[in-house]
Amino acid sequence: MSDMTIPKTYKLFVGGKFPRSESGRTHAVNRPDGGFLANVATASRKDARDAVVAARSAWSSWAGATAYNRGQVLYRVAEMLEGRGAQFAQEIIDSTGATPAAAKAEVRAAIDTLVWYAGWTDKFAQVFGGANPVAGPFFNLTVPDSVGVAVAVAPNAEGSSLLGLVASIAPILTMGNSVVVLASESAPCVAMSFAEVLATSDVPGGVVNILTGNVAEILPWLASHADVNSLDLTGVEGEVAVEAERSAAETLMRVIRPRTFGATEKSFDRIARFVEAKTVWHTKSLA
């Protein structure tokens, strides 16, 4: 029996659980050479809705966690990813046909990215925020606060099946946002394996929700969703991106336009796109 292959059917990752699509739909994912790789769930708009609900309810406690604690959790994700590095390298090869060296380098870079953002959690506020000079006997302090629920689309670009996903969600999580991310259509299996990493790290359920399926079908519902606070279109191109921007204009949702950042870019500025500056006045002395 040991040589029997068990083709895997990947499910969604919503609210810390792995549900099937509400619609019951799945689709087959093939290897670059055309052979069958696995089945993945095809998310519907209702799965997207459920994911936003899960992200919304997870947000307050994640945002309320100490910066140090968020850093530890992100670091833990990096640890878990490293422990399963070989598996991920193989999955990248299976999904994209990358060379073993390139796959290994991509996993390495993804771990690096997580550690890099984990470090920023308790340092970002010092750099971004500050004590503002004002003409009066007041302290005037600016501190960054998380915005809420973010939606991101993992990029399809070459060499980014894992790295692109990690580079999308890590800056969102750093300062306490929760996220609904649409996996890239080219490498959904890698994304769902990463969900297994998240589920076995200390990331609270609902902070990260991953949907697989047709981006053009689901994204419009998320872009127009009034309970989504920010929309990262880094991984989206063309007509779908234009339509998403147009829908997002109906609400106060902030939009990170396509090509603002590179698909696998890690940057301080990316964190800054998912925070709101909160400024507090306080008297210097009561005397």
């Binding site: 809705r49 936003v52 919304r56 519902w221 127009s224 969703h225 009034a226 309970d227 989504v228 829908s247 109906e250």
Partner: peptide
């Protein structure tokens, strides 16, 4: 025609 949120 689109999903609403608790802010509304």
């Amino acid at each position: 025609g689109h999903y609403s949120g608790a802010d509304y």
